[in-house]
Write a protein that binds this DNA or RNA. Structure first.
Length: 101
DNA sequence: TGTATGACGCACT
DNA sequence: AAGTGCGCCATAC
């Protein structure tokens, strides 16, 4: 576990319920602009059962970064619908829920 | 040592 | 709106 990972986790942990943040923004907030891929890499090796709100992290296009219909896509969408950040049609309210303001 | 590959992002067609 | 190209960085082979 390196320094950067700790920073990424801290930022993700800080995303308020019902809000969303992009991989790139996480990296920027963590002091490592331009390293969005590293955030994705970290989350890819983070178990989905963690307390970390990984599901509040989406890409800069306001979409879930898992292939449509995949297991991960489904789990993330459910979680987002659960806290009102997306609807059953798969629409994610990125513009309205983006964090930080 | 190179090369390919990702839960990415941005600029430019 | 949808593609394409390139930058970015850790890993795997």
């Amino acid at each position: 576990m390196n320094e950067a990972a700790q920073q990424f986790y801290a930022v993700i942990q800080a995303i308020p319920e019902g809000r969303l943040c992009s991989y790139g923004d996480i990296a920027k907030l963590a002091g490592l602009p331009g390293q969005a891929r590293r955030v994705g890499k970290l989350l890819s090796q983070t178990p989905s059962n963690t307390k970390l709100p990984w599901f509040r992290v989406i890409n800069a296009q306001g979409k879930i970064s898992f292939p449509m219909g995949s297991d991960g896509y489904q789990r993330q969408l459910e979680a987002l619908i659960q806290e009102g950040s997306a609807d059953a049609s798969g629409k994610v309210y990125w513009r309205q829920r983006r964090w930080p303001d």
